[in-house]
């Protein structure tokens, strides 16, 4: 199987799921019962047709034209860093409210700078992450009036 049809397969799957979900929607109690379904149903069908069209085109184009020079994205050097960034972001989201903005952001940036800038530059990394989180906290929370969660105990 050619790897170039994977995106169109995913879109086809999405189109099918979306269309099914549309048909399963409850009827509206006001107005025409099927009215909330018209627009989504059109979208679902359009996506199924377009993804089939894309698949047909990918199958027709000759092998090698697109895939010869391309390394699959998950084998590229940066991909593990992307996954790490997602992981750090998840942790960031989990601790954001509990640790407060300054502390959680400092940890998140420290971790990100570790990926980007390397551990040998830990001094710069620490200065940057501390300065950034404090600066943003002061600007947003104190000057712009945007609420950011406070870090317990130290009250900033």
């Amino acid at each position: 199987m050619k790897s170039s049809i994977v995106p169109s397969l995913l879109f086809l799957l999405l189109g099918l799921i979306y269309t099914t979900a549309t048909l399963l929607l409850p009827e509206a109690s006001v107005g025409r019962p099927f009215e909330p379904k018209i627009f989504p149903l059109t979208l679902g069908i359009a996506m199924i047709l377009l993804s089939l069209g894309l698949m047909a085109r990918e199958l027709k184009t000759e092998e090698g034209e697109s895939s010869s020079e391309n390394v699959p994205f998950y084998k590229e050097a940066g991909f593990s860093k992307i996954l790490l960034t997602c992981l750090f972001s998840l942790v960031y989201a989990l601790v954001f409210d509990k640790l407060g903005y300054v502390l959680s952001t400092m940890l998140f940036l420290e971790a990100e700078l570790l990926i980007f800038n390397g551990k040998e530059n830990w001094k710069i990394n620490t200065i940057v992450s501390l300065a950034f989180s404090l600066f943003i906290y002061i600007v947003f929370s104190k000057l712009l009036g945007v609420y950011l969660p406070m870090t317990p105990v130290i009250w900033i």
Partner: peptide, 24 residues
């Protein structure tokens, strides 16, 4: 066009303003 449809699909998530039906 696929990207456009995908974007429109994202915009349909949530309560439908006219009928109150919760979608997707």
């Amino acid at each position: 066009f696929l990207a456009t449809i995908l974007g429109l699909m994202i915009s349909t998530i949530g309560i439908d303003g006219q009928s109150g039906v919760v979608r997707f």
